[in-house]
Amino acid sequence: MEKSEDAFEIEITDDQLTERFIIRPQHTTDGIPVYHCYLPDGTSIGELRQEPSGEWIQVWGDLANNSVERIGEAIAHHMA
């Protein structure tokens, strides 16, 4: 894999809590980027990618399905 663009920050807010994540995109040989997800302190928490169907999947990590979807939506919004 090779580095694509610089890292960016996303925020996910629910009724009572705002969470911040640092996202570092990376191109892959199949042309679909993988998004490395970090906490603000630099702790790696997972890797996501968006399938051609539009579904966000977790390549690595232990995130709940709803977290994968919410982080994926925030990444897609940032990249649009």
Rank of each mutant, 00 (worst) to 15 (best):
D15P: 13
D15M: 14
D15F: 14
Q16M: 09
Q16W: 15
Q16R: 15
L17Y: 13
E19P: 01
R20L: 14
F21N: 08
I22A: 12
I22V: 10
I22P: 12
I22H: 13
I23L: 05
R24Y: 09
R24N: 08
P25Q: 06
P25I: 02
P25L: 04
P25N: 00
Q26A: 06
T28W: 15
T29E: 03
D30V: 14
D30E: 10
G31W: 02
G31M: 05
G31E: 06
I32H: 12
I32F: 03
P33M: 02
V34P: 01
V34R: 00
V34T: 05
Y35P: 07
Y35F: 02
C37E: 00
C37A: 07
L39W: 15
L39N: 09
P40G: 15
D41V: 02
D41A: 10
G42V: 12
G42E: 06
G42M: 10
T43Y: 09
T43Q: 11
S44F: 10
S44P: 15
S44A: 12
I45T: 09
G46Y: 08
E47G: 11
E47V: 04
L48H: 07
L48G: 03
L48A: 01
R49Q: 11
R49A: 07
Q50T: 00
Q50P: 07
Q50R: 15
Q50N: 02
E51K: 13
E51D: 02
P52I: 04
P52R: 11
P52K: 03
P52F: 04
P52N: 03
P52C: 10
